[in-house]
Design a protein around this nucleic acid. Structure first.
Length: 605
DNA sequence: GCCGTTTTCGGCCCGACTGTTTTCAGTCG
């Protein structure tokens, strides 16, 4: 989610909380919450959309009043109505609500009746016994609040998807081993939507003996704490402090269950609104006919959506924006899939900082069924990564040309070349001209200001040898912040020079990230999904990169390495300014802005 | 505050769980 969207969403979420404290209309409160959550799910920057002249009322849940407030925020940096509302309450009352289990009502009572508006103050009030004097504040409630204050301090934030997915897969394997009766068992929630960070693991399963499965979960050795344990549902905390929620139903309800627990809250609410308009009511067990009371069950998700007259909506798109509208019209894009990829353009070997020989890496790529690959060891400037000197690069090129005859795949000579601080490249031009594929990446001087960094990367794009900009933001999820740059300027330059932008599939990077890739797609910039493998096992990382592209509403046509070998060779053999024409001509799907501007029926386009 | 293939007024998603209650409010997803 773009930062400005997060800011806007937070303001509306806060307004909803404050209105709830005031006892305002629940429907007004819901409207603000709905707007906040829809904005959180948008893949594009609201600020940019406003600059482009978009009418925000095209966004479901945003009408005149909320649209006006967004314009006010963008123009003045403030929202008057929010500030007036804030002024009616003690400072800091909203911070109490960051404690799980403390909602608007509780926060208000604590602030009003105890004069406490900080978490530290609340902790003190608990220890001094003042909280216990409030009505409906029993021992258990207070104990819960106290525990959650403690866990706020010790528990981590959301974790990057890579390790969480591995953990989920480990848990699934362990459950399957212990419980032979399990039928379906898979992740739901943000994990199934491939969000880049995950708050907790939702698992959905089927079994003729559900209680057996929930029992297996709570008795796994990795479980640190059991939060709840019933016959069809269990919640536990596993190492390293991540919550796992498991729901198990009969096989014939699985479609409704997984549909219910995959979409964002906003998606699910919209789905139910829509179902109501058809005279139907949805829950996690099936679809109820409101007139007759008859319940239909669905063993799989496709038949569930189909019963509602909808295309099957890919999990990555279930964020409550336009996906239901488009599914109704049969207009959902056919998102890129792993099977569409024909090549991997960013791989390392033992020659630089990879862990496997060139042969092992080639074989791993061959096993993926690809038609071409580029070996891209580091350039000389990466001393720490054992970067290749000019001589070693020439030697590697000779070796690769010789190896070619032994493999059924086109092996392209490449390099991941450092973009130096001034935007020049790390090899002389005549050496770069020998290469088929150049991935140019920033690995140093990451603290440059936005203008310097933007000019630096654009200078690299203007080099005739540069094919792809590697991991453009250089971020490491949860460990290193992205560099500063002007995304619009970079994407314009990429389009103008015919340079591809990488979606680096390493789960540590996911770079470009989804919203940046979304904008790149809109602007017609070629995107390359690369594994950036340093080990033969890493070639399987592609699934993370494909997920980023899917979250960016990309179809195969938007992705450079879905091109056939012949098409890709035609692309790289065309001199750069004209490459973009080749890319466009090869695209089965022209870059479109449909995902953003598709109007709801009846409104003007 | 938003919204409309009955509607510009009169509706507005659904269920589980918890703890504190003698019938339900608050919170969560």
């Amino acid at each position: 989610m773009p930062d400005i969207n997060a800011e806007i969403a937070q303001i509306f979420e806060n307004m909803a909380s404050l209105l709830e404290m005031k006892g305002d209309s629940v429907f007004k409160i819901r409207a603000y919450q709905r707007a906040a959550r829809t904005i959180s799910g948008l893949a594009f920057s609201i600020e940019e959309a406003v600059r482009d002249g978009m009418d925000l009322r095209e966004i479901p849940g945003i009408g005149k009043a909320i649209s006006d407030k967004i314009h006010e925020l963008i123009q003045t940096g403030r929202v008057g109505a929010y500030e007036e509302l804030l002024a009616e309450f003690p400072d800091g009352v909203l911070t109490l609500m960051t404690i799980p289990g403390v909602g608007p009502k509780t926060a208000m009572r604590i602030a009003q009746e105890l004069g406490v508006t900080t978490i530290e103050g609340l902790e003190k009030a608990i220890e001094e016994g003042r909280l216990a004097r409030l009505p409906r504040m029993g021992e258990k409630v207070i104990e819960n609040i106290h525990r959650h204050i403690h866990s706020l301090r010790t528990k981590g934030q959301r974790l990057p998807i890579g390790p969480v997915l591995s953990l989920a897969e480990t848990i699934i394997a362990a459950l399957r081993e212990k419980c032979p009766h399990i039928g379906e068992l898979c992740p739901g929630g943000s994990l199934r939507r491939w969000e880049e960070t995950i708050g907790d693991i939702d698992l959905m399963g089927t079994s003729p003996h559900p209680e057996e499965v929930t029992h297996c979960l709570v008795s796994l050795p990795m479980v640190q704490e059991v939060l709840g344990h019933g016959p069809t549902k269990a919640s536990v905390v596993v190492y390293p402090g991540i919550q796992v929620d498991l729901r198990v139903v009969d096989a014939d309800s699985f479609g409704a269950l997984i549909a219910h627990f995959t979409g964002s809250q906003q998606h699910v609410i919209q789905l139910r609104d829509y179902a109501n308009s058809l005279g139907l009511s949805l829950n996690e067990y099936g679809i109820t006919n409101l007139e007759t009371g008859a319940v239909e069950k669905f063993a799989d998700e496709a038949s569930f959506y189909s019963r509602l007259g909808l295309q099957h909506i890919p999990p990555e798109l279930r964020l409550g924006t336009w996906e239901i509208e488009l599914a109704r019209e049969g207009q959902l894009p056919r998102l890129v899939e792993e099977a569409d990829l024909r090549g991997d353009l960013h791989l390392h070997s033992l020659w630089s900082d990879g862990r496997d020989s060139i042969e092992t890496m080639v074989e791993a790529v061959v096993a993926r069924g690809y038609e071409y690959m580029a070996l891209t060891d580091h350039s000389s400037g990466r001393g720490i990564a054992n970067g290749l000197s000019n001589e070693r690069l020439l030697e590697q090129i000779r070796l690769l040309r010789a190896l070619q005859s032994q493999y059924p795949i086109t092996i392209l000579c490449g390099s991941e070349v450092d973009i130096r601080a001034d935007g020049t490249l790390d090899y002389p031009d005549e050496l770069l001209a020998e290469l088929d594929v150049v991935v140019a990446s920033v690995h140093s001087a990451m603290g440059q200001d936005s203008q310097t960094m933007t000019e630096r990367i654009i200078r690299a794009m203007r080099h005739p040898a540069v094919t792809i900009i590697g991991h453009p933001s250089t971020r490491l999820l949860g460990r290193r912040e992205p560099v500063q740059f002007d995304l619009e300027a970079l994407l314009e330059a990429a389009r103008e020079t015919g340079t591809a932008m990488e979606i680096n599939a390493s789960p540590e990077r996911l770079d470009l990230k989804d919203v940046h890739a979304y904008r790149a797609r809109e602007m017609g910039v070629p995107l390359a999904i690369d594994s950036d493998s340093h080990h033969h096992n890493n070639v399987a990382q592609m699934r993370f990169g494909v997920a980023v592209a899917r979250r960016a509403w990309c179809e195969a046509g938007h992705i450079l390495n879905t091109r056939s070998r012949e098409q890709f060779l035609a692309f790289i053999r065309t001199p750069k300014p004209d490459r973009i024409k080749v890319f466009d001509a090869q695209a089965e799907v022209r870059a479109s802005r449909r995902a953003r501007v598709t109007p709801v029926p009846g409104s003007s386009a």
